[in-house]
Design a protein around this nucleic acid. Structure first.
Lengths: 289, 289
DNA sequence: TTGAAAGCGCTAACAT
DNA sequence: ATGTTAGCGCTTTCAA
């Protein structure tokens, strides 16, 4: 130990991992780092992994399934204990490779589908339904939608589809929608609401693909003097902290993102059996709807 | 190759790394994942690393230098090609260990100090000075400060110190300050500005530790009917996208975070000689100051 | 050009 | 309890 100290010796984990053929690497293959959702998941998982001396490695797919496949393959080359990815929508190749890999696979933030191994999250379809039911209960009937690229953000697409189903079942189908091609952002939310209202000025409520978009909508209303919620109600998704700090707290659904990461990491560390865990979500009434 | 295909063989990078004794791992030791600043750096670096078949691994210090030391040591055990950390403020142990490790070390987002090896970023002191000079040029004289825990966020502390120096040199020292103990957040910015104004109602401008805090201040003013910037001017730091989407674009300094990550990764990939690269920053005039 | 063999720095199984 | 040795799955060097 004196020599260890003197020489600054640090055991080589590469060699250790090779020798033991069991790794303490956990690979994250996530759609984006800009989206706070995935940063929150990483944060939750990171804390648990670190306590258990696991090491997190990551790569970013930009919501591209074929890139996900390439990155998942690259990750597998490190022989991780587990690979964590977002949702259920993978290419056949990804699913097959993951299944054959022998390492644990955790699918995060969605429960509407079949898991490869472990799934931790909540139902986006249920979130869409509850959002619609809430707006209807509040008496809104002329409802519009503002979203971002749904072909890439499949979970947002699930929410939207379920949202529309409830509106239709109620006999008050969606009046209008404005879907921008790019990623979700505050700026895009603002722009999209402006466009939507230009086409459908008599809406009484708008459902947004997430809080970022909804904040943009809120700022548009502020700038235009549109009174919220009497003139127009706004509803988001995610329950970001910033939504509570604006003058009128945003009505939204709060999702347990950090808890999702934590739970996922705990299951991996414990080598738990395959299972799907529903962490639920919470509807925040707020002041905008 | 037929067998490779049939068996789904993936070369073991652990073994490969051990055998070649050269790794393509890059270790990030960052203060936080909640702070978009570090997510941006990771994003910029991640893209470049991926193209060059490097793999990013990370861990989070929570702004704790002793935790940084422990995590850096853990990272070194993976024999990375480089370790990237935020700023210059490390424990002696961390610096010594890093120097002895033989791997490249990149210090990010600060240039006010001495680099161990490579440094990429911009001067926080210069940013503080320019912010002060801008407010003075605009005619503000009764200036306050709203910040978060500066003992942890050392770069924010540097900005603040330099900001104050310029005010003092001008004969108009800082009138009041409100520094909250916690991390920066929109909610804390709102709360802190409220407290600051309760004690010093005659301020004509407030400098915030960053845009998150400044947004909170902006929302406080909106809610209280304080007219911006005639009654009170606000100035932030970071140049977050959301600051451009609020009804009055936030006056702030935009920092090249993604570019910092990219440049850092490029230098590591190219095995560039030790150097400090100043990527500068841009003052955004906005509408709040 | 192709093939064989010797490690890389550990872990784990085995022998003492 | 302690010491020895055979790998882990590759890369690299050296021989053929």
């Amino acid at each position: 130990m004196a020599a260890v100290e003197r020489l600054g010796y640090v055991p080589n984990r590469i060699a250790g991992t090779l020798a033991s053929t069991t790794s303490r690497l956990v690979a994250f293959v996530i759609p984006s780092l800009s989206n706070i959702v995935f940063a929150d998941v990483l944060r939750g998982a990171g804390a648990v992994l670190e306590e258990n001396r696991y090491q997190a490695v990551f790569s970013v797919t930009d919501y591209d399934p074929s890139k996900e496949e390439a990155l998942a393959a690259a990750m597998l080359a490190w022989r991780p204990a587990a690979v964590m990815l977002a949702g259920y929508e993978h290419t056949d190749g990804t699913a097959k490779m993951l299944r054959a890999s022998g390492c644990r696979v955790v699918e995060l933030l969605d429960l509407d589908g079949d898991a490869i191994d472990i799934a931790v999250g909540f139902s986006n379809r249920a979130a869409g339904r509850e959002s619609a039911a809430f707006l209807l209960k509040r008496g809104y009937r002329r409802i519009g939608y503002v979203g971002h690229d749904l072909s890439r953000d499949i979970r947002a697409g699930k929410r939207f589809a379920s949202f529309c189903e409830i509106l239709e079942a109620n006999g008050t189908p969606l009046v209008a929608r404005e879907i921008l091609a790019g990623a979700s952002s505050v700026e895009n939310g603002r722009l999209a609401l402006e466009r939507l209202l230009a086409r459908a000025s008599d809406l009484d409520a708008v459902y947004f693909s997430n809080d970022d978009m909804a904040l943009g909508g809120y700022f548009h209303c502020l700038a235009q003097g549109i009174v919220i919620p009497s003139q127009l109600a706004l509803f988001g998704y995610n329950g970001l902290d910033i939504g509570r700090a604006i003058p009128q707290p945003l009505s939204t659904i709060r999702t347990p993102r950090v808890a999702t990461g934590q739970m996922a990491a705990e299951l991996v560390v414990a080598n738990a059996p395959p299972q799907a865990i529903d962490l639920g979500f919470e509807l925040i009434e707020g002041a905008t709807a």
